Simulated scan of single mutants.
Amino acid sequence: MGVPIQPARMREPFSGNDIRRWAQAMHYPNRLHYDSDYAAGSRFGGLLAPQSFCVAMDDAHGTGPSCVGLIPNSHLIFGGDEWWFYGQKVFPGDMLHNHRVALDYAVKETKFAGPTCFQRGDNYYYNQDGDLIAKQRSTAIRYNPDAAREMGSMGPSEDPEWSDEQIVDLENKKYDWIKMLHDLGHGKRWWDDINVGDVLPTRIIGPHSIASFTTEWRSYLFTLWCGVKRRTDLDMEALGFTDEMAGKEQDPVLELDNPEQTDGAYIGPSRGHLFPRWARHVGMPRAYGYGASMGAWILDYFSGWAGEWGEIVHSNCSYRAPSLAGDISIMDATVTEKSINEEGQHLVHVDFKMVNQDGVVSATAKAEICLPKK
């Protein structure tokens, strides 16, 4: 604990299409992040990345420093992310690196898999000028998949079915949130106009599918062949991952010889997300989404509401259950407090919850969002 691991480093600067790919994969239709003409009329004068984007450059979704040490016969899922943002934005042409330090761990008894290790690690994202953009404190949940299968707590293995009428209704509800983005446009959401008890507009994503999970996966730079500078200290077997899931994901030597053997979409611990057989192998009932993507949905929900003149200052998210194929994710939040911090920022405090169509809670969060003052 407290020892840095190898930093995550990019090969080439971000392009506008890297940002567009991320916004599309995260289902975030904020025109600041994909429409150059619209972005040119913003306060920034051009395309910029969402606040959720830093994690796209990392070779482990930000969970690298929260997965160190040998735990035999184990698998890993994301448990949560806490973010601090420092006002620096990410633009096309930027180069990021991530300084990563293991923080702490605790073993707890869970209904999901019995004895479970909760590990935390810190990520410090810097740009090419050395400016600190964000700090991410990631939580990894490391568990015995045999125990998870035996306890059978993850639900049915078949995707829920949605009628054509239900899909149309969902699309209309999803557009209500998109229209909120359009209505605010380049305008300001004033701190003065917000009251305790106000409810943020509902955001819906889904139904999730193997296709949508794959789209999300491919928006992370490390999922591309030679997309990032690979770590040389990453050894899935040394971490204790089960034999069938250890693989050679992200192996820098094998990538140059037979890159398909290093692609986490097909081989290694990440394939449980996209293949129901391997999802069940690690204790999940069917294909399931990425914790890092879930975290991005939450950050985008906050920042989309804040608008281009606002920003997230701090967010603390806990992931309670995976987003499974066939499910939808419904996001809501309520204003609980207004304050002014020591830096003079005018903050709105919100409580957040994300549930599926059956009301099962998949994530909760608390955040402080800075808004402009009249």
Rank of each mutant, 00 (worst) to 15 (best):
W177N: 03
H208P: 00
Q88A: 07
D81H: 08
D129I: 00
W190R: 11
N127Q: 05
I178F: 11
I77F: 09
I77D: 00
Y143T: 07
R203I: 05
E82R: 11
D81L: 11
G187F: 05
H75F: 11
H97R: 13
V199E: 14
I77M: 13
A134I: 06
S163D: 06
Y126Q: 03
K188R: 13
D122A: 06
E165W: 11
W190Q: 09
I71E: 01
W177D: 06
D94W: 02
R189L: 08
D94N: 09
P160A: 08
D81Y: 06
W84C: 14
R189I: 03
S153P: 01
F85I: 02
D104C: 01
W177Q: 02
S74D: 03
D183G: 08
D129R: 15
G185H: 09
D146M: 04
E150T: 10
G152N: 15
L76V: 15
K111Y: 06
A211L: 09
P115N: 12
T116V: 14
K174A: 08
G155W: 01
H75Q: 13
T202I: 14
P156K: 07
E171V: 04
S153H: 01
S138H: 06
Y124E: 12
K179A: 14
I141E: 00
S163G: 10
I204M: 08
Q119G: 10
V196I: 15
G80T: 02
T202D: 07
L170E: 08
D129Q: 04
K111P: 03
L184A: 04
W162E: 07
W84G: 10
D146W: 04
D159F: 01
K174D: 02
R149H: 02
H208W: 10
W83Y: 12
W83Q: 01
P201I: 12
